[in-house]
Amino acid sequence: MFMKDLVYLPGVVTLSLCEDTCNGCGMCIKVCPHEVFELSGRKAHIVRRDYCMECGACALNCPVSAISVNSGVGCAAGIISGYIRNSEPTCGCSGSKSNCC
């Protein structure tokens, strides 16, 4: 069934790309699950910022560290448990009960 891409809140994501540093390898395009980047003029560009879910795959795989993003789990239960434990938001996916991810 045809359906428009789901998109979350506008103007909140922390993604940034330094186009001067970018070497145009295109790795960010390969790893992004939401088509946030596009390559033109031998540089990557952010074209669908609001679709970014801050998974961090692009920043981790950028060989010249041109991308930065404050990555983490976009999960309310994870934020609550992080708040209770006074730590970073974590979903309880590893070896414990969870609904997350």
Binding site: D5, L6, V7, Y8, L9, V12, V13, T14, P33, H34, Y51, C52, M53, E54, N70, S71, G72, V73, G74, C75, A76, A77, G78, I79, P89, C91, N99, C100, C101
Partner: peptide, 20 residues
């Protein structure tokens, strides 16, 4: 319903923080 942000495939940490 907010709980489903964790199961969804398109919500960001910054977004969920703002929502909460």
């Amino acid at each position: 319903a907010m709980n489903f942000t964790g199961s969804s495939t398109y919500t960001s940490l910054s977004g969920v923080r703002k929502e909460m």
